[in-house]
Amino acid sequence: METLQFTRPAQAARIQPALVGYVGSGDLEVMVEPLQGSQAEIHIQTSTPGSEIRWRQVIEQIEARIALPAMRMDIHDFAATPGVIRLRIEQAIELASATEAQA
């Protein structure tokens, strides 16, 4: 297991806590919580050692497409492929940014 941390510039935004995915084979769970300020703190625990460059690239790809909201993001990865990782992260941000769901 490897622990990684990235801090990226982000936009202050109203978001709500969100959780997607689970720690099953080839999948990951992504938790998003609001954070004061203008940074996105990304904490990663991954079962795949030596994957720091890959994670950085995935995050850069996402940043090129969407503006990261200020948040703390926690990731528990169980050998997901870059495609699945990107999908889950974008899904979590979308869910966190969605206007309050109807009760």
Partner: peptide, 20 residues
């Protein structure tokens, strides 16, 4: 809930990724 972050204290020590 997962947001209480009550994970296993034992899995990480054994190099296994926990779940929230």
């Amino acid at each position: 809930t997962p947001f209480d972050r009550l994970t296993s204290p034992w899995l990480e020590k054994q190099g296994i990724v926990p779940q929230f």
